Amino acid sequence: LHIEINVNGLRIELHNVSEELAERIREILEKVDDREEARRLAEELIK
């Protein structure tokens, strides 16, 4: 499954994740104000 999410102008592509996991990642990242911090957090979440 390939999912693309957009959060605060940051486009993140997720591969091989469930829709539920992608939604949780999006919800978490929406709470982060700083774009660079959101990017770093996204990288950690999808490892």
Score class of each variant (00 low, 15 high):
R11N: 15
A42H: 02
V7A: 05
D34A: 06
N16S: 05
H15F: 07
E43N: 08
D33H: 13
E4F: 02
L29Y: 10
I46T: 10
K47L: 11
R39P: 02
V7T: 02
S18E: 04
I28H: 06
L41C: 06
L21R: 06
L21D: 11
E27H: 13
I12G: 01
I5H: 00
E37V: 11
L41T: 07
D33C: 05
L21E: 12
L45E: 07
R11S: 14
V7K: 02
E13L: 15
R24C: 05
H2E: 03
V17C: 03
E20P: 05
V32I: 13
E43W: 03
E43Q: 08
D33F: 14
N8M: 00
I5D: 02
R39K: 13
L41Q: 10
L29K: 01
K47N: 12
I12S: 00
L41V: 11
R40M: 09
I12E: 01
R11D: 12
N8D: 15
E27S: 14
H15P: 02
E36Y: 05
E30W: 04
N6L: 11
I12W: 03
E27V: 11
L14I: 07
I3A: 03
L45F: 09
A38W: 02
A38P: 02
A38V: 14
I28K: 06
A42G: 04
E4Q: 09
D33I: 14
L10R: 10
L29V: 08
D34L: 07
A42R: 01
E44G: 10
E37I: 09
A22V: 15
I3L: 07
V7E: 10
V32M: 10
E19L: 15
D33Y: 14
E44L: 09
E36M: 07
N8Y: 00
V7R: 01
D34R: 06
S18A: 05
L29P: 00
E27G: 12
H2P: 07
N16M: 06
I28W: 07
L29S: 01
I25L: 10
L10F: 03
I46V: 13
R40P: 01
R26G: 03
R39T: 11
R40E: 07
I46L: 13
E36I: 09
G9Q: 02
K31W: 08
L45V: 11
R40V: 09
R11P: 13
L10W: 02
R35T: 13
R35L: 14
I3E: 02
H2F: 05
E43D: 12
V32D: 04
E30C: 07
L41R: 09
N16C: 07
N6A: 02
E19G: 09
H15M: 05
S18L: 04
G9D: 14
I12R: 00
E43H: 08
L10Q: 15
I28C: 06
K31R: 12
K31H: 13
N8V: 02
I46F: 04
E4P: 01
I25F: 06
R39L: 15
E4T: 15
L10K: 15
A42K: 01
R40H: 11
K31P: 03
E44N: 10
H15T: 06
L14V: 08
N8S: 03
L29T: 02
I12L: 08
E30F: 08
R11A: 15
E27F: 02
N8C: 09
D34V: 07
L29A: 05
L10M: 14
L1A: 11
V32F: 12
L29M: 09
E23T: 14
L21F: 15
V32Q: 11
R39C: 13
E37S: 10
E37G: 08
E23C: 06
L29H: 01
E27M: 09
R39D: 04
N6F: 03
N8L: 00
R39N: 07
L45W: 05
E37F: 04
E13Y: 09
I5P: 00
L14W: 02
E43Y: 04
H15K: 05
N6C: 11
R11V: 15
L29R: 00
E19K: 14
S18D: 08
L1Q: 10
G9P: 00
I25T: 01
L10N: 15
R35M: 15
V17M: 07
E4D: 05
N6S: 02
L10Y: 02
D33W: 13
L14A: 06
E44T: 08
I12Q: 01
V7P: 01
E43F: 03
R24F: 06
K31E: 11
K31V: 11
R35A: 14
E44Y: 03
N16D: 08
E4C: 11
E23R: 14
D34H: 09
H2Y: 05
E20I: 08
R26W: 06
H2C: 11
I46Q: 11
L45T: 08
I12A: 01
L21W: 11
E19F: 14
N16Y: 07
H15W: 07
E20S: 10
E13K: 13
E23A: 12
R40A: 11
E36A: 08
N6I: 15
I46M: 10
A22N: 02
V17T: 08
L10V: 15
N16H: 11
E43C: 15
K47I: 14
I12P: 00
V17R: 01
E44M: 08
L1V: 12
L45A: 12
E20R: 06
D34F: 06
E13Q: 14
E23P: 03
G9W: 00
E19T: 13
E30A: 09
E44H: 11
L45S: 03
E27A: 12
V17K: 02
L41A: 08
L10E: 15
H2V: 15
V17A: 12
L1E: 07
E13N: 08
H2K: 06
H15S: 05
S18Q: 04
D33G: 13
K31I: 08
L41P: 00
E27W: 02
L29F: 10
R40Y: 04
K31S: 14
R24G: 05
E44K: 07
V7N: 08
I46D: 03
E37P: 03
K47A: 11
A42D: 01
R26V: 10
D33P: 12
I25C: 02
N8P: 14
I5S: 00
L14Q: 00
R40T: 12
I5M: 03
V7G: 06
I5N: 01
D33S: 14
R35D: 10
N8W: 00
E13R: 14
L29C: 01
L41S: 05
I3C: 04
K47F: 08
N6R: 02
A42V: 14
A42I: 15
L14Y: 03
R26N: 03
L10I: 15
D34E: 07
K47E: 11
E30K: 08
E30Q: 12
E36C: 07
L1W: 01
A22K: 04
I46E: 03
I46Y: 03
A22H: 05
A38D: 01
R24A: 13
L14M: 08
R24V: 12
N16Q: 06
N16R: 04
E13T: 15
E36H: 10
I46K: 03
A42M: 11
L29N: 01
R11G: 11
I25W: 04
D34S: 09
L29G: 01
E4Y: 02
E43V: 07
H2N: 09
A38E: 01
A38C: 06
L41E: 05
E37W: 03
L41W: 06
L1S: 12
I5C: 07
E43K: 04
K31C: 07
K31N: 13
R11T: 15
E13A: 10
N16A: 07
H2R: 05
E4K: 03
E13P: 03
R26L: 11
L14K: 00
E23I: 13
L21N: 05
E43I: 08
L1N: 13
I25Y: 02
E20K: 09
E30S: 13
E19P: 14
E36S: 07
N16T: 04
E36R: 06
I12V: 08
E19W: 15
R39M: 15
E43A: 07
I46W: 04
E20M: 08
H15I: 10
D33V: 13
G9K: 00
D34I: 07
A22R: 04
E13W: 09
E43M: 09
E20C: 03
A42C: 04
K31L: 13
L41F: 06
E27K: 12
L29E: 01
S18C: 03
E13I: 15
I25N: 00
A22E: 03
E23N: 14
L10P: 04
L41G: 03
L29D: 01
D34M: 06
A38F: 06
E20H: 14
E23H: 14
G9E: 05
L1D: 07
L21A: 10
I46P: 01
L41K: 10
E37L: 12
K47V: 11
L21P: 00
E20Q: 11
R40L: 10
I12C: 08
L10C: 12
E37Q: 12
V17L: 09
R39V: 14
E13F: 11
L41H: 06
E27N: 13
R39Y: 11
V32G: 07
I46R: 02
A22F: 09
K31Y: 11
R35S: 12
L1R: 10
E23S: 12
R26T: 06
N16W: 08
H2I: 15
L14S: 01
R24D: 03
D33N: 13
I28E: 08
I5V: 06
E44W: 04
I3H: 05
I25H: 00
V32R: 05
I3Q: 03
E4W: 01
V7S: 04
E30L: 14
L21C: 05
L1C: 09
S18K: 04
D33M: 14
H15V: 09
R24M: 15
K31M: 10
G9V: 00
A38Q: 09
A38M: 12
H15D: 04
L45Y: 07
A42W: 08
E36W: 04
L45Q: 04
I12Y: 04
S18N: 08
I5R: 00
E13G: 03
E27P: 01
L10H: 15
L45M: 12
H2A: 06
E36G: 07
R35V: 14
N6T: 07
